[in-house]
Every structure is written in structure tokens, then in C-alpha cells.
Design a protein around this nucleic acid. Structure first.
Lengths: 344, 344
DNA sequence: TTGTAAGCGTTATCAA
DNA sequence: TTGATAACGCTTACAA
């Protein structure tokens, strides 16, 4: 493959001139420009970014770490990120967090430290999936923004863009309580995602505020998957007296929960109400349509990259949390609590 | 940030020695090893990949171009790819194809030609979304594998891993015909995805084989989205005499189609049967569960990367199409055709 | 086993 | 406006 030097030789000029042609064409004479242009076309030359980036000392590359590619919610966030990336001239690369779990610390840290990327957006993080402990201890890494997650105390050097998960969850749960529900179950996702401990906290808060007790058998793990949620739901359906509502830490699990409830012959919301989080595109067309908390996904993405870009320019820029508005969307999966059953 | 030279200075050895320590530790004396190790830790050194890759002449980076991040089907394919990537020591980067449409040729080609990536996997492609005409004309690019798409004549220099879309679609349509359906509509996706022209061809083939006429008003565009499919379905519901079945080019659209049919008060499959493609995870829990063609998504991903890796090692390796098996999954969204209505 | 030095493909500085 | 040359951080003969 042709290098800049080859072009220079063929055009009969110095390498510096070709470089100038590439970066500041107006500084090279019309006549020379033509020669260089001609040589470039003849050799099918295109600049080697490795050389360029090495010399320039930056890559214009931002890496987005996503827990699961194929997740409809994160997909929307990423759409927002890439849109801003196009606008700012930044290359966006997406990487799936190691599926192996927290034990296998990821190689993402290495990738960053090795200067191939100049910034990171952690979607839904931070979790030990994303970055190794070693990495987190260091202070000499490029800027990091946590989007749609939760920048917690222990990672306070990260900026964050997110909804107020505690408040959103409290509001959703309070809405159910307002419908007369008292026996409300909760299906959490992976416990190492901090945004979800917040959601669980909001649920507990609303229950406490209403004076309802949370039985620990009514709170269980759904692993963020449809299948996990179905199994979790099966467990919750054994709780007696029967729960009249189930809140899920995201819509994906809520869809699984609804499937399992339907499979068991119960009615939604007649027997049990179900609510989720995220408002993914499948929630609106579910049967029944799912009550959920909408996160402004694309906005989350856009804002994260703007903040990251600011931090890349000025490393000393603030790294507090930027809250965006959520919205309770009431649909038909929630209804008034069924009259108290006397059987069992 | 510390460089290899800094480490060498601090450890009191030559740069070459540090480099050897990094790459062939067994070739350096135990005593020296300790010194270097110590210096590395003290400086928090990690190698700059730009320098290393430039010198070595390769990056170990593979780029996956996906039409839409957040698509559940492609998400599975990517999972297969990343798994093999971990295994082969290749870094997998995902990039979303420019959302702007074919007019805006993408910068992916530049990225590849600039030697940052050593291979490309095109998911669902190739389409003009992915690569510019200029790029496709060139022959000096790194190996390209088309996964879950269709490597057509015009891109015959690409290897492909896919199901036989024509045959799968023919089979699905023939299954409906076997249930007594004769008036079957078709909702295609974006016409520039070649895999979908194949699916439409298979549908037409089955119809022709059964001696059924395809009315052009019964074939329409769904843009690969739920919303697009709903609009398409609204159009199809006006066709008279009424269609008794609708085949969609993917499950995403089929879910939208079912939502619209339900919204219009018709029964699935009582009035209209619906079938899709891909067997995404939401299809099984849809109401009713969706009849579809399963593609072995993870396998598609795994095979693509193996083929790409082979081509990276040996550029002259074959680039034919590697077919994997699809499977018809019959669920409750399809049933026998309703008795011929005399009204209208 | 270690040191020296050339070179990967660029850009940038300094003279000319 | 252009050319010569050092430098970015690393690897790898080759010599010691």
C-alpha cells in the first residue's frame, strides 16, 4: 500500500509538501497541488492513520461500552451518541462489555490506556464488567462519562448523565400504591449495575412512605433478560397472599414477566399489574401495552458525548451528574388493585 | 504519560530490553526483569498501541458494520462475533452505518483504507449505507465478509455467511399456502438490503409455484421498523378481497403488523395469519407467538469471523458463500385460512 | 543477555 | 512556497 513517501517521490516533491497538501491545501501552489493530486490518484493513496495519530498525539476516537449490543434501549442511546459524533467529527466505536462477568476484568481499560481512544462512555455502568479495579484506581486515564447509569461515590471522578432513578422508581411505585396496591413485588436486574440499586431503593422508599411492608420474598433477581424475568416471576407467583403488582427494573424483564403471568392463566391487570422502565419500542405494542418510565434515550446519548467532548478539550471540566427528565407513561398493564381475595 | 523510553531510563536499561520484557519476557534475565517490572509499575506504564501497531504493521482490529445498533437479531450475531474475537485475540469494534441513507456515503471505507482495521464484517449488507461506491471499486482493501446478508454478483469479491433466503422464504410462504391461504401479502424492508430482495423473491416463487397471483397492491414497504410496518399493514388491510395472511421480511415488522391488525379489531390468526423472519427473542412472547424463520444468529457471527480471520491470514482464500441452516418455527400467529367470506 | 540504531508513516519546525 | 529533518513510541536485526 502506497505511503506518503511514495506519493512524494512520484510527484517529485518532498514528503512535507504532500502532508501540507493533505492538511492545508491552500498553502501549496496550484501547480504543485495538481501534481500531488495526480500522484495520489495514480497510487490510490490514502493516509495511514496510525502514523498520523502517532505523530499528532490524538485519534479522535471515542469508545462506547455497552452491556449488551442488541438492547433496544441502549440502541437508542447510541443513536444519539453517533449523531453528535458525526457532528463533532469524532469516531464512535462500540464495544460490548465482556459477557463473561465481573471476574474476567475487561480489556477495555487496556484499550483506553494504550491511547487508541481518547474518551469513554459507559452505558448503564459503571460495573465491574466494564473496567478492571486496576484501571479504576488510576487517575491518568482519559475522561469517562457514565450514561443512563449511575455515577456513584466510588467512581466520583466520572461525569454522569442520567435520570433520577430513585425518584422515578418512587414515582412509579407510588402510582401503583395510588391504585390501591399494597402487595407489590420487585424484580431487579444484575445487582452490579448501580442504576438498578437506585431503582430498587426508590421502590422501597415509596413502599415505606405508604406504610407498606416489603417482604424479602417479593424482591428477586431477573438478570435483565426475558428468560430470567420469567423464572423470577414464577417465584413471585408463589408468594402468599398473592402480589397484586410487580415492578421490573426494565421493560425487557417486564415483557418476560407479562408472558409468564399470562402463561399461568392470570389476567393483566385484572389479577396483577406490571410496570417497567425504559419505554423500549416493544412496550407500546405489548399485550397489554406496558406502563413504564420513559427515559429520553437519544437525549441521554447526545448529552453524554457533548460532556465527554468538553472533558476531552478541558480535562479539568466538572464531572458532576447531569440529570435529565424521566416521564411516567401509563398504559393498560396497570390497573386498580383487585378486591382482597379471601381464598388463601 | 510514560513511554517505553521513560521506563528504560528509570530502569537503567535500553529501550530494546523493555520491549523484549513486554513481548518475550523469557529472553530477559531475571534480575533485569525485576528492575523493568518495578519501573513499569512506578510509572504506571502501558504501551502505546499506536506506536506498536505502526511498527508491527497490524492492529488486530476488526470492524463490524451494523445497520442498527439495538436490533435484537444483529445483537445476537454480534455476540457470536465477539466470542470468537476473544478467542482469536482480535479486537471487535462495532460501528453503526450512517443513518443518513445511501446518499451520504459512509466514512467506514476511509477508516478501513487508513489501516486502522484489518478486516470488515458487514451485517445485513452490503448496502450503499455501508460503503461508498469509490471504496467498492477498489481492490486493495482488507478482507470483507458479509454476514446475514447477501453477497451478490456485484460484490463478488466479498465472502458471505448466510441462510438461503430465497429458499427460506419460499418454504415459509409454501407453509401458509398449505394452510389454505391464497391471498397472501408481503411487507418488505428497505429495498437496498439485498437479503430482502431474496426474501421477496422466495415469496413470489412460492406463490407462482402454487398458481396464486401476486397483486402488486399486496406487496409494500415497511422500512424495517415497527412504525413502518404498522403503516404498511394499514395499507394492506384495504386490499379487497381481504388478504388472509401477511409475510413480513423480519420479525420486528411482523410485531408491528400484529399490533396494527389487533388495533383494527381483527383476529390473529382467525382473520389473518402473520409470519416473520429472524426469530428474535420478542417473537416467542408476542401475542400470539409469532411463526417465523429462525436464523442461527450466533453461529452466523462465529462463522463470519472465522472466515474473516482466514482471509486476513491468507488474502487469496476463497470468498464464496457459506450457507447455514434456517428453520421454520411454527407458532400460533399462523393458522388455517378463514372460510371464503361472501360479504364483499 | 543486552545495547544500538534503523525504521514504520506521519507532522511540524526551521531554513532556504 | 518548498525541502530537509527530527520526532512521535514502538519493534527488531545486528553487534557486542
Amino acid at each position: 500500500m502506497a505511503s506518503l513517501k511514495d506519493v512524494a517521490t512520484l510527484a517529485g516533491v518532498a514528503t512535507g509538501t504532500v502532508s501540507r497538501f493533505l492538511n492545508n491545501p491552500e498553502q501549496v501552489h496550484r501547480k504543485t497541488r495538481a501534481k500531488v493530486q495526480q500522484a495520489i490518484e495514480q497510487l490510490n493513496y490514502s493516509p495511514n492513520m496510525l502514523g498520523r495519530n502517532l505523530r499528532r498525539g490524538h485519534t479522535g476516537l471515542v469508545v462506547v461500552i455497552v452491556p449488551a449490543v442488541g438492547d433496544p434501549f441502549y440502541g437508542e442511546v447510541i443513536r444519539g451518541i453517533t449523531r453528535v459524533g458525526d457532528h463533532l467529527g469524532l469516531s464512535i466505536h462500540i464495544r460490548e462489555a465482556r459477557a463473561a462477568g465481573p471476574a474476567q476484568s475487561s480489556d477495555v481499560g487496556d484499550f483506553i490506556l494504550s491511547r487508541q481512544a481518547e474518551g469513554i462512555i459507559l452505558l448503564g455502568g459503571p460495573s465491574s464488567y466494564d473496567l478492571s479495579e486496576d484501571f479504576l484506581k488510576r487517575t491518568d486515564h482519559p475522561p469517562i462519562v457514565v450514561a443512563a447509569g449511575r455515577a456513584s461515590e466510588e467512581y466520583s471522578s466520572f461525569a454522569g448523565v442520567q435520570i433520577n432513578n430513585i425518584e422515578a422508581s418512587r414515582q412509579l411505585t407510588a402510582y401503583l400504591i395510588g391504585l390501591g396496591h399494597a402487595r407489590i413485588g420487585y424484580i431487579r436486574g444484575e445487582p452490579w449495575f448501580r442504576s438498578e440499586t437506585d431503582r430498587e431503593a426508590g421502590y422501597r422508599l415509596a413502599m415505606r412512605e405508604a406504610g407498606h411492608r416489603v417482604e424479602e420474598s417479593a424482591v428477586t433477581n431477573g438478570n435483565l433478560t426475558i428468560q430470567g424475568a420469567r423464572e423470577a416471576t414464577r417465584r413471585l407467583l408463589h408468594v402468599r397472599p398473592r402480589l397484586t403488582a410487580i415492578v421490573c427494573a426494565n421493560d425487557e424483564m417486564a415483557l418476560g414477566t407479562m408472558a409468564e403471568i399470562r402463561a399461568s392463566g392470570l389476567d393483566i391487570p385484572g389479577d396483577i399489574s406490571v410496570a417497567g422502565f425504559d419505554n423500549i419500542r416493544y412496550s407500546e405494542i405489548a399485550t397489554p401495552p406496558l406502563t413504564t418510565i420513559e427515559q429520553p434515550a437519544q437525549l441521554l446519548g447526545e448529552r453524554s458525548l457533548y460532556r465527554l467532548a468538553a472533558a476531552m478539550r478541558d480535562p479539568s471540566s466538572e464531572n458532576g451528574i447531569d440529570f435529565v427528565n424521566h416521564r411516567l407513561i401509563v398504559r393498560e398493564s396497570t390497573g386498580v388493585a383487585p378486591a382482597r381475595n379471601t381464598d388463601r
